[in-house]
Amino acid sequence: MSRNPLPEGAQDIDPATVRFDDVSMRYGRAPETLRDLSFSLEPGSFHFVTGASGAGKSSLLKLIYLAAKPSKGLVHLFGQDVSAVPLRDQPFLRRRIGVVFQEFRLLEHMSAFDNVALPLRIEGRKPDSYRQDVAELLAWVGLRHRMHAMPATLAGGEKQRLAIARAVVNRPDILLADEPTGNVDHEMALRILRLFVELNRLGTTILIATHDQDLVARSGMPVLHLDGGQLTRLGSEP
């Protein structure tokens, strides 16, 4: 059922998973939230996006998961200019992107198991083909005993891990996480970081927006630092 919107040979032309060329973005007529960003994320890379509140971290992620459009410049995903992808093909591009939202966005009327299975059902897969995978994934994030639980009954850390499981269940090429440790204690934050590192080892490109400097320092991963909507640092955190 899934379609690949990439033109033939596109990945050969541009191997970057994400590439921003002089990208700016604004909401309506407000001043620009992001200004003149240019960077690229190679496949299998792991980056943090840091910056103060309002620096534009979430907006940058929105541009990547196609929830916003740039007011200037070009965003390339998997070698293709996003502005050239027809609307009807964008869902197929989204399926290659896993997103862990700051506010989780779990469906309250579905159990933990159903929430994780959601992206696979949307792809049109039959339950028999993913039932076991979903159970194993929930076990991997430490929620084997909470498969039947409804989101409202889960603790903050459990919701966060459930959101991560949902974001990675269909093996996306890139995983975006917006403040994934914002609502959990230090120990849980490290546990979540380990999950991201494990996913990255499996080949998933990771981009995490956070203001948790301790987490960034512990990981030793490269950082995109935003200040007032501009990229001020690109590289390893000192």
């Binding site: 159990s111 198991f113 159903d114 159970a135 005993h145 498969m147 039947h148």
Partner: peptide
């Protein structure tokens, strides 16, 4: 109620919440 799931008996929940 146990939060463990009987995988064989699991049926997908409706996409939309009940009325």
């Amino acid at each position: 109620m146990s939060d463990m799931l009987d995988l064989d008996r699991w049926k997908p929940a409706p996409f939309l919440p009940d009325a």
